[in-house]
C-alpha cells in the first residue's frame, strides 16, 4: 500500500521534473534576457525570500489577504444563513446578488482607493468585497437545500431555534458553504496580488512590480514563483480543513471516510489529497440530494 503510494508520487513527479530540467537546459542555451536559468531564479529566490523579505513583504500580503477573507467568510455565512431562512427575501434579492457576484472585483479598486486611500484597509476592503459573494450565495443555496422533512422533524421535536440553526441547518449547508469558500479563496488571492500592483508600498505583488520596472528579471520571476507557492499552499491548507470539517460527509465528497460504492467498483483508492474540483463537490452534493442531511442527523446527535 505504502509502496504503491510512493510509486504513484514518483510517477507524478516525473513530468514536472522533466519540464523543469528542460526549461533550465533551454534557458542556459538560449540566454534569453526574459527567461533566466532556474539556478539564477533560485538564487534570487533564496536571497529575497529566505527570509529577508518575509517580514517586510510576505507577511503584510498574507495578513491583508487573510483579514479580507475572514471578513468575507464571516459576513457571507451569517448573512447567507439569514437570507437562506427568509425565502421571499432571498428570491427578491437574487438578481441583485447575482449582479454583484458577476461584477469583476478589480473594477472596485478605484472605489476602494477613493474611500480608504492607499493603505491597508483599502486592500482588505477590496479582498473582502470580492470574496464575499461566492460564500454568501452558496450559503443561501445550502440553507435552502436543507431537507424540509428534517427541519419539520427538528421543529416538532421542539428543538430550540438556535440549536436547530447550529446543529441541523448549518451542518447540512456546510458542503455548499465550503464550495463557496473555496471559490472565494481563489478570488481573495487574486485580489491580494492585484491590490498590490496598484498603489501599494509593500507586499509580494509590489515587489514583483518593482523588480519588473527595474528590469530585474530573475527577482521578478522569484516573486512570481513565490506567489504561485502561496496559492498552492493555501489551496492545500483549505483542502485539509475541508477534509476535517466534512469528514462525516464522505458520501458527497467522494473522499475520506469509507470507500464509496463507486470507488470500490473502480478498484481505486479514494482520491488522494488532491481534490475533486469545487464543481464536482457541488454537483455531487446536489445529485446526492438529501445526503447532507443524512450526515447531519448523526452529527447533531454526537454533540
Amino acid at each position: 500500500m505504502i509502496r504503491a503510494r510512493l510509486g504513484d508520487w514518483a510517477l507524478a513527479l516525473v513530468v514536472p521534473l522533466l519540464l523543469l530540467v528542460g526549461y533550465d537546459l533551454w534557458a542556459r542555451g538560449a540566454g534569453d534576457f526574459f527567461f533566466p536559468p532556474l539556478s539564477v531564479i533560485g538564487g534570487n529566490f533564496a536571497d529575497d525570500w529566505l527570509f529577508e523579505r518575509v517580514p517586510t513583504d510576505l507577511l503584510p500580503s498574507l495578513a491583508r489577504m487573510l483579514a479580507g477573507y475572514a471578513i468575507a467568510v464571516a459576513i457571507g455565512v451569517v448573512a447567507g444563513m439569514v437570507l437562506g431562512s427568509l425565502r421571499t427575501l432571498a428570491i427578491a434579492l437574487d438578481p441583485v446578488l447575482q449582479f454583484l457576484r458577476a461584477l469583476p472585483p478589480p473594477t472596485l479598486i478605484p472605489v476602494s482607493l477613493l474611500v480608504f486611500g492607499a493603505g491597508d484597509s483599502a486592500k482588505i476592503f477590496l479582498i473582502a468585497l470580492g470574496a464575499l459573494w461566492p460564500v454568501l450565495l452558496n450559503t443561501v443555496d445550502g440553507v435552502r437545500g436543507v431537507d424540509p422533512t428534517v427541519l419539520d422533524m427538528a421543529r416538532s421535536y421542539r428543538i430550540p431555534a438556535r440549536a436547530r440553526l447550529l446543529r441541523v441547518v448549518l451542518p447540512a449547508a456546510l458542503p455548499r458553504i465550503f464550495a463557496g469558500a473555496r471559490t472565494a479563496l481563489a478570488i481573495a488571492i487574486i485580489l491580494m496580488v492585484v491590490s498590490e500592483l496598484v498603489g501599494a508600498s509593500n507586499g509580494v505583488g509590489h515587489t514583483v512590480q518593482l523588480a519588473q520596472r527595474g528590469f530585474n528579471i530573475p527577482e521578478m520571476w522569484a516573486g512570481t514563483v513565490l506567489l504561485g507557492l502561496v496559492g498552492f499552499a493555501f489551496n492545500a491548507l483549505f483542502v485539509a480543513v475541508e477534509r476535517r470539517a466534512l469528514g462525516w460527509h464522505h458520501g458527497s465528497t467522494g473522499r475520506g471516510g469509507a470507500p464509496t460504492r463507486r470507488t470500490r467498483l473502480r478498484r481505486e483508492r479514494p482520491r488522494p489529497v488532491l481534490t475533486p474540483t469545487r464543481t464536482a463537490v457541488a454537483v455531487e452534493s446536489a445529485a446526492a440530494g438529501p445526503a447532507p442531511t443524512e450526515g447531519s442527523v448523526p452529527d447533531a446527535r454526537r454533540q
Partner: peptide, 21 residues
C-alpha cells in the same frame, strides 16, 4: 497519473502574478 500532481500544483497559481512578466 503522470500529470495529476503537476496540474493540481499549477492550478492555484494566481494568474495575475504573471502580469508583470
Amino acid at each position: 497519473r503522470l500529470t495529476r500532481f503537476m496540474l493540481e500544483f499549477l492550478r492555484p497559481i494566481p494568474p495575475v502574478a504573471l502580469i508583470p512578466a
